[in-house]
Amino acid sequence: MPEVTIYHNPGCGTSRNTLAIIRHAGIEPQVIEYLKTPPTKAQLCKLVADAGLSVRDLLRTKEPLFAELRLAESRWSDDQLLDIIGQHPILMNRPIVVTPLGTKLCRPRSEAVLEILPVPKVSPFTKEDGEQVIDTGERRGK
């Protein structure tokens, strides 16, 4: 089975649903609880680049610390923001999933993970809130 990694926060419903979808697909991923084991700056840079995100896309703007540190201000460089995320991993948007088909921030919808799962079509899945997820079987090309 190809390696799949999820940067996970068990306190986040979207992250829990994403992890459950991965497991529902028959994959046991490497689970990195990034609040306990924050990614290094180099790992963050790679995640951002591989997912096609900006560093600002990686920030949780609704986290109170975001406002407290005034991170919306344009004065912060990407390098500085990466350092801040490293110091305060709660500021990292989640979950981020890495598979052989790519890297994806699976927010705001956990079913976004289906695009990069290295398996055929997944059977219907019911999220925590009762919403059903139907997989179209479409996957991202590497």
Rank of each mutant, 00 (worst) to 15 (best):
T40W: 11
K41S: 06
A42W: 07
Q43S: 12
Q43Y: 05
Q43L: 14
L44H: 12
C45A: 15
C45E: 04
K46N: 11
K46D: 05
K46A: 10
L47M: 10
L47D: 00
L47E: 07
L47A: 09
A49Q: 05
A49G: 03
A49C: 09
G52F: 01
L53Y: 11
S54E: 12
S54L: 12
S54P: 11
S54N: 11
S54I: 03
V55T: 14
R56K: 00
R56F: 00
D57S: 02
D57E: 00
D57Y: 02
L58M: 09
L59P: 01
T61V: 08
K62E: 03
K62S: 00
K62I: 05
E63S: 07
L65V: 12
L65W: 04
L65H: 02
L69E: 08
L69Q: 09
L69S: 01
L69K: 06
A72N: 02
E73D: 08
S74Q: 02
S74G: 10
R75E: 02
R75G: 07
S77D: 04
D78L: 09
D78N: 06
D79L: 02
D79H: 10
Q80V: 06
Q80T: 04
Q80W: 07
L81G: 08
L82V: 14
D83Y: 12
D83A: 04
I84F: 13
I85R: 10
I85T: 14
G86R: 07
G86F: 15
G86W: 01
Q87G: 12
Q87W: 04
Q87V: 05
H88R: 13
P89K: 06
P89D: 09
I90W: 01
I90P: 06
M92G: 07
M92H: 06
M92D: 10
P95F: 12
V98I: 09
